[in-house]
Design a binder for these strands. Structure first.
Lengths: 104, 104
DNA sequence: ATGACACATAAGTTTATGCTTATGTGTTGG
DNA sequence: CCAACACATAAGCATAAACTTATGTGTCAT
């Protein structure tokens, strides 16, 4: 697993959209297809990429597979981002507020 | 500019490595090539992608062009990440520490 | 001014990636 | 059991993206 893989997973607009959908609530693969013009195998392949990047995780429920956001993927990005805190200028006020919120 | 473009810029391992180099200090394009097996045009093209994603910025210095990390790109990622704070579980202790540090 | 240099852009080729159709695997209801 | 369903995997194709060589642009030193 190369470090840039997590970014590669989010680089495709369709996968990005899938992730955003899941961020609004867990869903099975079929439900995720609604609204997107995408075949069933394509969805399955996208989910596999997101899963192997640690961005989503699955939970089989009968013959359905429920997908949800995996916090570990987001944590990885947060850790990556934290490495560059030297570059966050105080003038980026919006960012400061965001970071404060992040720490809760 | 699609939202996933900033991730696409970091998805390529070579570009990722270039960004990491710049994070350790600004450098011109020639200096960036050292250590990487990459042609001069390839470097130029990678830098163009990183620049248009808002991750790096350039400053011409004579016949050299100095590149440095653009905080705005990182801020964009931070803002994106903040949208999903609902998914950061308190049990991710390492992350919590990191986030605390981020807020300084 | 002009040759050398640092970098950008153009054009074409190769490789990676996202798609499709076809088929396989596991689960459920009748 | 077995037919229908939900999803995964395989194989092949089409497009995109990263590379190459060749050339263009701007700057400096002499």
């Amino acid at each position: 697993m190369i470090e840039s893989d997590i970014f590669r997973a989010l680089a495709d607009p369709t996968r990005y959209a899938i992730f955003e959908k899941l961020a609004n609530g867990s869903m099975n693969a079929s439900a995720l297809r609604e609204g997107l013009t995408i075949s069933q195998p394509a969805m399955s392949q996208h989910l596999a990429v997101l899963r192997s990047a640690g961005l989503v995780r699955e939970e089989r429920q009968g013959r359905f597979v429920n997908y949800e956001v995996d916090p570990e993927g987001l944590a990885q990005i947060a850790r990556w981002l934290a490495k560059y805190r030297a570059y966050w200028p105080s003038r980026v006020d919006a960012l400061k507020a965001v970071l404060k919120d992040m720490d809760q």
